[in-house]
Design a binder for these strands. Structure first.
Lengths: 254, 254
DNA sequence: CCAAAAGTGTTTAAAATACACCCATGC
DNA sequence: GCATGGGTGTATTTTAAACACTTTTGG
């Protein structure tokens, strides 16, 4: 099928495949260069950026819809996902955007499920930045990482959704395996600390952080140190998954 | 319109008024006799109990749908509401229940939006028990309060929804005005403590509790004491709303 | 006057914070 | 050899937990 045909099919027959009125939007977080980042798509024609999103198959759990979308945008399976809020402002209509979109590719319009109101369920995802190859979808020009403090203008209420996800991430830091999912298998203590500092948006004392995190027992210190740094080489650590998951149930206390 | 006609209209024309595939379920919490309680409806014919729920008008915010449902079941306006999770298991189908229901009132069935899959958005509500007059809806025999530790068998995944609400309430205790919404305007310190103990499901030290809660500055001690108790009369307190809301932003720390 | 439950204060333990010195590495 | 940032230890303050005696009220 050509792109145009595929799109026409989506607009005029998509409702046979997907649930009406419901969508999923994903806020994908990554951590790189000591910065928390979010993966965004540049919507064709609109010029603005958007959260990766999609629709729900008639017989699909929303968690699976989100997984499907994430797999498409990042190439990753088994991503850590968390549903954080459902957005239902009746004014968050995609009608104008979708009509504009159709006109731009040469359709006059008509009736489409895509012009109707959508309630969107927000998911946040935590991924290992180094493993992700951003892939744009067919209605997007680009797929890129942005620092969370420098997000560009976004369509609809996506800015709001993103901010809710970030707020939720802060609240959940002590109860979700945030570190494990955002960092690589092995990492240094300063890296982990930077992650906490970025998410909590405040400086932490290096020595107290180390003591506190080690006292939880969730980390295993490795023999290996980081190479090629022009100062004392930091050790690598990895998570003790069993202790980590136990500790999360009680909360880490940051 | 007669009841049967109203119902038939709902089953076969409701989709013209409401969004398809989306519903709202409310977990209404109250506090009475030093017990945390939840308000349930007894579904006609099914014999099992259910959370008060409803559908979303085509141009309505989900928050407003929930408010509408709560007003109908409790008679209260301005209820404290909190969206806590969206349930989307494709197997949580109301089809069988609704078909059974239709048969019971003498319809053969046919096609109806009510037989399709529903994604349900969970809201929890905190109400002043003393102000509520439980009102059954037209598909229910009864509307009653249950202690949260003694909930009866419930339809579909309502038990699961209820448990998620309770879990969420525990997590949110330090960040939402739980005490204010569950208690009357004035209350005694032991009442507030019992509320915390019930929600957290653990005993707290009377003296430390008093000190801790007073140190937050969220309470104002009144001159008045409780009358008619055969022991030293406890003082009444009320919330200092300005300090309360400020303190909640930082978290109360229980 | 007694049982029941509330008011108040002190002592102790634990946790968070603040802070200082030494160490390894690349340039 | 020096700038940079990491590793470790200790003293101090703050907060939480444990605990005991006195007070008021109805019966």
């Amino acid at each position: 099928m050509t792109f145009e045909k595929e799109l026409k099919d989506h607009y005029f027959h998509g409702h046979e495949k997907y649930l009406r009125h419901i969508s999923v939007d994903c806020v994908i977080f990554g951590f790189h260069d000591n910065e928390l980042k979010v993966l965004l798509l540049k919507a064709k024609y609109a010029g603005k950026w958007a959260l990766p999103g999609g629709f729900i198959l008639k017989d699909e759990h929303l968690d699976d819809s989100a997984k499907r979308i994430l797999k498409d945008r990042t190439g990753l399976d088994k991503i850590y996902l968390h549903q954080f809020y459902t957005f239902s402002d009746p004014n968050r209509s995609t009608k104008k955007i979708n009509q504009q979109f159709l006109r731009n590719i040469g359709f006059k319009g008509g009736k489409s499920w895509m012009f109707e109101r959508f309630v969107s369920v927000g998911y946040s995802a935590l991924v290992d930045f180094t493993k992700v190859k951003p892939i744009a979808d067919n209605i997007s020009d680009a797929c890129e990482w942005f620092k969370v403090n420098e997000v560009p203008e976004m369509i609809l209420d996506h800015r709001h959704i993103f901010e809710m996800a970030l707020k939720n991430l802060r609240l959940q830091l002590n109860f979700q395996p945030v570190g494990f999912n955002l960092l690589s298998k092995k990492f240094t203590m300063p890296e982990l600390q930077k992650l906490y500092e970025t998410i909590l948006n405040k400086k932490l004392d290096r020595r107290n952080f180390q003591r506190k995190i080690m006292s939880t027992g969730i980390l295993v210190k490795l023999k290996e140190t980081k190479k090629g740094v022009s100062h004392k080489a930091p050790f690598y650590y990895k998570f003790d998954l069993i202790k980590y998951s136990k500790a999360l149930k009680a909360g880490l206390g940051f």
